[in-house]
Design a binder for these strands. Structure first.
Lengths: 188, 188
DNA sequence: GAGACCGATGTCAGTCGCTGTCATCGTCAT
DNA sequence: ATGACGATGACAGCGACTGACATCGGTCTC
């Protein structure tokens, strides 16, 4: 066995999630997280840039997935269809509704965490925009297709997480996309 | 004359904007801002909840404007038209492109400030959603119309701010709305 | 296999954002 | 006058985050 217990990063993430759930984000100190993980505060900051990041580090997986899905969409697909294909791929990564719900409850309970979540979504939108431009879509169109796509994702994800919701994520995404089309096309 | 110089809040805001522009947001300490305004650090935090808020305190004006515009839209207007009317009213509050540009440069240069900006935009979207629901629009439709409207606003504002852009804000908003309609209606 | 090197962690001191608490002192109503 | 009020100052303290240096198993080199 090595000098240290394995998977320090994972232990920190789990300890943080537990403490944030039990006592709330603000009431939890980094020293407490590190102690529960059997490490020091300084080591926490070597693995995560700040106290919030421990909840969002997994987000890059979703971003990669979206970007690849847009790139892989058939040439015949228009911008919004390519985005729709990307959103549809989300359910291969968002499997466990219960843990998503718990994580979201922690985030929703704290303004700083909501801020971080928003910047992650904005980064997702940027990545989608860049991916669309890689398909030859113009700037303005790419931006709006990406932003609108993220709006759809936000709405659909919130419904998926909601208590009592029984539909699966792809279906909610499809419904939200259809609603967006209906809303936008009624512009006079 | 009173015991103190007048308009402490305004002096703090101006000092902060100057220092953030000159040395950057992170390199500026609250003590420095307070000193330039002839006050103490403690007093800064009596006027602004945190170091970032001094750049965003004016945002509630825009929110009020949007909400009132949605509420005042004619009954015949659909959700997206009511949102369009709200966005169109933005130029009565965003008058000085140059100071908007300078403020945006400060914000764009710092991740924490971008986070704060995003949560203000999200709050704007919530307010729009609530205003739409007050018109009898259903939840899903209201959310999507509001989110899509904010997406349009973001894109149009960014273009307005951009170097070399000569069109005015209402026109850019109109163009972005039209583009959104075109993008969304092409969903297959 | 001895020693140089490496990488994850610990230790410690320090800065800064932010808060609670109490003191200060013009102003204003009575 | 006097006492309540309100904006500010003074001060102590907590916690997030950082930089610098030490520690010590594992690994590589010769």
């Amino acid at each position: 066995m090595g000098r240290w217990q394995p998977n320090a990063r994972g232990r920190l993430a789990q300890a943080a999630m537990e403490l944030y759930s039990e006592h709330g984000f603000e009431q939890t100190t980094v020293a407490e997280i590190a102690k529960r993980a059997g490490l020091t505060e300084r080591t926490f900051f070597r693995h995560y840039a700040d106290k919030r990041e421990v909840l969002f580090a997994g987000g890059s997986v979703l971003e990669d997935l979206f970007v690849r899905a847009v790139a892989d969409a058939p040439d015949s697909a228009g911008p919004i269809d390519a985005v729709a294909a990307a959103l549809a791929a989300a359910d291969t990564v968002l499997l466990d509704r219960e843990s998503a719900r718990q994580r979201q409850a922690v985030i929703d309970a704290n303004a700083e965490l909501r801020e971080r979540e928003l910047i992650k979504l904005a980064s997702l939108a940027s990545a989608l925009t860049a991916a669309l431009r890689g398909r030859g879509v113009t700037d303005l169109t790419a931006s709006l297709a990406a932003e609108a796509g993220i709006a759809v994702f936000k709405v659909a994800f919130a419904r998926w997480i909601a208590e009592g919701e029984r539909k699966d994520l792809p279906r909610l995404i499809r419904e939200s996309l259809d609603e967006l089309r209906a809303v936008a096309s009624s512009l006079s």
